[in-house]
């Protein structure tokens, strides 16, 4: 960002816009932002674990609408596909597989929640103060073509960012293999009975080594599904 561009932007902003006369996009952004922030707050404070995941859907969907309001439509649909479509489903599967209680669980928050609240409020105050002070006279100009259309994003992604893109596909492959390796059971020492097998009562402990028991672990399938969704993207 060159200083001349900043000066031009500032002059343009002060000439044509006022702080107390918001445009329609700003009003919509603030309203959706309030819904998103409220959903995020409920998601980190509720004592019902499944409700936390479902409120996270509201927060992530609100963020997708914010991306649309910022004219980044491709990011918005990727957000809907990846986060709302697969990450929250993975989280719900994780809650189900760790036998999370359905109703209110009184020990959802640890003992240091007041210290955490103090840290979070202090960080929020400092960040909001700094950000508002820094960008008080900066405006986003929505005129012209959309900045985040699929054409612009794809052109920049496949012209300037090809190498990170390909490296990312290798990383996804590594994550896929890693998730499968982590979630399958060790097969070598099946004659030694496991120490504490309080979960997964479906699997027979100490079974014969010839029986493949990887079919009993749905996380393997969900990890592969998420990676396939990633790959399809």
């Amino acid at each position: 960002m060159t200083p001349t561009a900043t000066a031009v932007s500032v002059a343009h902003a002060t000439a044509s816009r006022g702080f107390l006369s918001p445009s329609g996009v700003e009003v919509a952004f603030v309203l959706v932002g309030l819904v998103t922030f409220g959903a995020a707050l409920v998601s980190v404070t509720t004592r019902q674990l499944v409700h936390a995941a479902l409120w996270l859907v509201v927060a992530l969907g609100g963020l997708a609408i914010e991306y649309l309001l910022l004219t980044a439509e491709f990011i918005a649909w990727v957000q809907v596909l990846i986060y709302v479509g697969s990450v929250v489903v993975l989280l719900l599967f994780g809650l189900m597989l760790t036998k999370a209680p359905i109703g209110r669980s009184p020990d959802a928050d640890s003992g240091n929640r007041w210290a955490a609240l103090a840290v979070a409020v202090a960080a929020a105050a400092a960040l909001v103060w700094v950000v508002v002070d820094a960008f008080r006279t900066t405006w986003i100009d929505f005129g012209g073509a959309a900045a985040g259309s699929t054409k612009a994003t794809g052109a920049s992604l496949f012209q300037n960012w090809v190498l990170p893109f390909e490296a990312l596909s290798v990383l996804l492959l590594a994550a896929l293999v890693g998730a499968i390796v982590l979630s399958r059971k060790a097969k070598a020492e099946t004659n030694a009975p496991p120490v504490s097998r309080s979960v997964n009562s479906r699997t027979v402990p100490g079974g014969s080594p010839s029986v493949p028991d990887s079919r009993n672990h749905p996380i393997e399938g969900t990890g592969r599904e998420a990676a396939q969704q990633e790959g399809a993207r």
């Binding site: 950000v131 508002v132 405006w139």
Partner: peptide, 8 residues
């Protein structure tokens, strides 16, 4: 749009 809104 004011840039402070998404930043905040």
């Amino acid at each position: 749009m004011h840039l402070a809104y998404p930043a905040v």
